[in-house]
């Protein structure tokens, strides 16, 4: 989970991903060309290259397309993982739309997103700007330090956070006690548990987002900021009026990843809160996992996965529309 899920591939940064300098132009007539290439004779002529690229497609069909289609089929059945599947039609979907626990987990994701993503994004921009500005010595060390939490095992980080945030014996509450602040129920109260999870997410993902922002900053020509400074702009003005607007596509890209990441969150809440208290930090993926492997309701879990997938697609499409409008403007 964790590290794989937001690794950037060229595809992510592709035509409409919005990272400056990486835009790929689409040739006119490309589609017609593609059609002609699918002609049997053309295919035969290209048999050797096709053979050499086929391993990917074979593996993708077996491990990608087949499971996707099978889940769809599965979502129309009741199945305990073994034995005969019982056809139930749309019953799983019907039940799902009234399933308060599932929609509660979606709501949890939304709340978590609002709790940590704005703060994390802002911190990432600020940190990236500081690193980019070059007035810090030992840049490499700072970059490594900022990125370090991201490559630390989430299980180790999560358990450390649990120890620190324990209400009565945790270090954080003891430290707060010294300053005269009473005990905070970091993990025992619904809202505090969500905030604690947000803190863990910021700790684990801030470095990652900082690196994305830094990459973005490095594509912004320095002349623009220089020109502004010549015109008498202060450092703060340059940041607000020049840097942030030019960075916008990258910010939106990073926020998109964070949205998807939040809805896919699994390891972090599992280790920190186990989804509690009272399901306040339970996420859709935790629900799907439990439904599949603990409750052995494969069909229902498949239906959950499809609905959850649809929600993520809708959110991502909205994001992309937003981005392309920015590009046009």
């Amino acid at each position: 989970m964790g590290t794989e899920r937001r690794r950037i591939s060229d595809h992510d940064l592709g035509p409409r991903g919005g990272v400056p300098g990486l835009r790929v132009e689409r040739r006119p007539g490309a589609r017609a060309a593609a059609r002609s290439r699918l002609h049997p004779r053309a295919l035969w002529r290209a048999r050797w290259p096709l053979l050499f690229i086929s391993p990917f497609f074979v593996l993708f069909a077996v491990f990608g397309i087949y499971p996707i289609l099978f889940s769809l089929w599965l979502s129309l059945h009741e199945w305990r993982g073994i034995g005969p599947m019982r056809w139930v039609g749309l019953e799983n979907y019907r039940f799902l739309f009234g399933d308060g626990i599932f929609w509660g987990s979606m709501r949890n994701s939304l709340i978590l997103f609002l709790i940590y993503v704005p703060v994390m994004t802002l911190l990432a921009i600020v940190l990236a700007s500081l690193l980019h500005a070059g007035f810090l010595r030992l840049q490499g060390i700072w970059r490594a330090l900022i990125f370090l939490p991201h490559i630390t095992s989430m299980v180790a980080t999560g358990y450390t956070f649990r120890l620190l945030l324990e209400t009565r014996s945790g270090f954080v509450n003891q430290a707060l006690g010294v300053v005269g602040i009473g005990q905070v129920a970091w993990l025992d109260d619904r809202w505090w548990a969500r905030i604690s999870l947000g803190l863990l997410m910021i700790w684990a993902w801030l470095g990652y987002n900082t690196v994305i922002m830094l990459a973005g900053l490095q594509t912004i020509p320095t002349e623009i900021a220089e020109a502004a400074r010549v015109d008498g702009a202060t450092q703060a003005q340059v940041f607000r009026q020049i840097t942030v607007p030019l960075l916008r596509p990258v910010i939106i890209f990073s926020v998109t990843l964070s949205i998807i990441g939040t809805f896919q969150m699994y390891t972090e809440p599992l280790v920190l809160t186990g989804g509690g208290p009272v399901r306040a930090t339970e996420t859709p993926v935790m629900q799907i996992f439990q439904t599949t492997f603990a409750n052995l309701r494969f069909g229902y879990a498949a239906a959950m996965s499809y609905v959850y997938f649809a929600v993520i697609v809708v959110i991502t499409l909205l994001q992309f529309r937003f981005v392309s409008r920015e590009d046009a403007g």
Binding site: M1, M154, V155, G158, Y266, T267, L270, V271, G274, G275, E282, M286, F289, Q290, F293, A294
Partner: peptide
């Protein structure tokens, strides 16, 4: 164990 995660 988050790898098996399981019953939450």
């Amino acid at each position: 164990d988050p790898a098996l995660g399981g019953t939450l």
